[in-house]
Computed example of a mutant assay.
Amino acid sequence: METRRNLWFFSLCFSAVIGLGGPNMILTQPRFVRANQNGEASFVCGFNSTEIGEEFQVIVHKGHIIKNTEVCSASFTNHTMKPLEKKSLLHCLVWPSKENVSITIWGLNVTDTDLYICRISRMHPPPYKESTGRGTVIYVNRAASYSRDQEADAGFLLTAVLTVLATLLFLYSISITVVYCKHKMKDDTIYINVRK
């Protein structure tokens, strides 16, 4: 009898410990996204709205989570479902809704082609739950990495080169004209009036 009671107590405690965290949230995100010409990429992290709770946090990692390369992080409550914009080396905008979180990252260049992993943590009510997506590969091609700043720099450089070239041609034509006029004035021809 004592053994049965201990076994029953052990199974009750074990099931309580196993079920304490509850089932994990199911988090989905696309496998592949291509950045547009401006170096901007958007993807959606979807989740089960019944598991999210009143307060949650969204974190986007670049590469593997172990390296702790956090690109975006935002915290939301059910009362403040407003978009959050974070500006760092990469700019991002996190827009929550009832069943997903839309994430837009811009300022991407070719070296930012990588795996971006979405992680959502339920902060309140307890128990704390966390779910990590499988990751989205964001591909940035060479054309997208050619930013507007580089385009402006290239335009300025072209204007400067053309201005210098035009100035040199103008100075060359002036100097040729001056040399010609001086040579013409030094002409040794003598005018003789023959009508006398």
Results as ranks from 00 to 15, higher is better:
6 N>I: 02
30 P>I: 08
15 S>R: 01
51 E>V: 05
48 N>D: 15
69 T>D: 15
42 S>A: 12
51 E>I: 02
13 C>E: 10
51 E>L: 14
64 H>Y: 09
67 K>H: 11
70 E>Q: 14
14 F>L: 13
38 N>E: 14
5 R>C: 08
58 V>A: 10
57 Q>C: 12
41 A>T: 06
74 A>V: 10
31 R>L: 05
43 F>P: 04
9 F>D: 13
50 T>P: 00
29 Q>K: 01
55 E>G: 02
48 N>A: 08
27 L>D: 06
73 S>C: 06
36 N>L: 08
43 F>V: 05
55 E>I: 13
11 S>Y: 03
17 V>K: 04
65 I>N: 06
53 G>A: 07
56 F>S: 12
54 E>G: 12
11 S>A: 13
50 T>H: 05
32 F>T: 02
32 F>I: 08
70 E>A: 08
34 R>D: 05
20 L>T: 07
74 A>P: 07
70 E>W: 01
17 V>I: 15
38 N>R: 12
14 F>M: 10
57 Q>Y: 07
74 A>D: 10
48 N>T: 11
72 C>S: 09
56 F>E: 12
36 N>Y: 05
27 L>H: 06
35 A>S: 14
12 L>A: 10
7 L>V: 03
7 L>R: 09
16 A>C: 12
62 K>Q: 14
45 C>W: 00
66 I>T: 13
51 E>R: 13
69 T>R: 09
35 A>R: 06
14 F>H: 03
71 V>D: 09
61 H>V: 01
71 V>H: 09
60 V>P: 03
47 F>D: 03
29 Q>H: 01
70 E>K: 14
6 N>D: 07
56 F>I: 12
70 E>Y: 01
67 K>M: 11
44 V>W: 00
42 S>T: 14
23 P>D: 15
20 L>H: 15
53 G>E: 05
14 F>Q: 03
45 C>R: 00
18 I>L: 15
34 R>F: 00
60 V>R: 05
57 Q>P: 00
39 G>N: 03
15 S>K: 01
69 T>L: 08
70 E>T: 15
47 F>I: 02
39 G>T: 03
53 G>L: 04
38 N>S: 14
14 F>V: 04
53 G>S: 06
35 A>Q: 07
62 K>C: 04
59 I>V: 15
19 G>Y: 09
21 G>V: 10
68 N>Q: 13
16 A>G: 13
67 K>A: 14
59 I>W: 05
64 H>R: 12
51 E>H: 12
33 V>G: 00
8 W>V: 06
16 A>M: 13
19 G>H: 07
12 L>F: 09
25 M>V: 11
75 S>Q: 12
65 I>L: 08
24 N>F: 11
8 W>H: 04
9 F>T: 10
71 V>M: 11
52 I>R: 11
70 E>C: 04
65 I>V: 15
74 A>W: 07
20 L>S: 14
31 R>N: 04
20 L>E: 11
8 W>N: 07
34 R>W: 00
35 A>V: 06
61 H>K: 02
24 N>S: 14
58 V>D: 04
57 Q>H: 12
6 N>E: 10
30 P>Y: 07
5 R>I: 14
57 Q>I: 09
46 G>E: 10
